[in-house]
């Protein structure tokens, strides 16, 4: 009886080990295709072809936001190394502002600008009251809007 229990434990353990190994291989093979978005650096490296739908994630560059008379919004998405200019027509989410993380969906034009038909705001992992945010900013520890998100 003891022997059979040990045998079952061994089988379950081995099965779990195999399963973990198999899923690790699958996850490694999936790799970047699971990524929800690509970064401007990856665009600059030529990893995205024009005309195909894709998502770009990054921060809205400071001072890059402008609204054209026809209602189109123009801004640059940056990962602090490379930038992509994005145009978009439509409603922007609450959290959208300069310095804020965004994920835009659309297609890359041949001229290198990005025509977005969806803009999602990406919230970061920081939660704090307004007073703390202001105090941090005043003390110069932190520049107000979330930035430097890239790992």
């Amino acid at each position: 009886m003891r022997f059979r229990k040990r045998q079952r434990l061994l089988i379950v353990g081995l099965a779990l080990l195999l399963l973990a190994g198999a899923s690790a291989l699958v996850l490694a093979a999936l790799g970047d295709s699971v990524a929800f978005f690509v970064t401007p650096s990856e665009i600059a490296a030529g990893e995205a072809e024009p005309g195909r739908r894709l998502r770009i994630g990054g921060l809205v560059a400071e001072g890059s936001l402008s609204r054209l008379p026809d209602g189109t919004v123009r801004f640059r998405v940056t990962d602090t190394r490379e930038e992509v200019t994005v145009t978009y027509r439509g409603l922007l989410p609450d959290l959208f502002r300069e310095g804020q993380g965004v994920v835009v969906t659309g297609t890359l034009r041949p001229d290198g600008t990005f025509a977005a038909d969806e803009v999602l705001a990406k919230h970061d992992e920081r939660y704090m009251p307004k007073e703390v945010a202001d105090a941090l900013e005043e003390a110069g520890y932190w520049e107000g809007a979330p930035r430097g998100e890239k790992r």
Binding site: L27, D32, V34, A35, F36, F37, V38, T39, G57, V103, L120, K122, H123, D124, E125, R126, Y127, R151
Partner: peptide, 12 residues
């Protein structure tokens, strides 16, 4: 949220 780019924020 650490292995891949996600819209969901990383752990707080």
């Amino acid at each position: 949220v650490e292995w891949w780019n996600t819209l969901h924020q990383p752990a707080s």
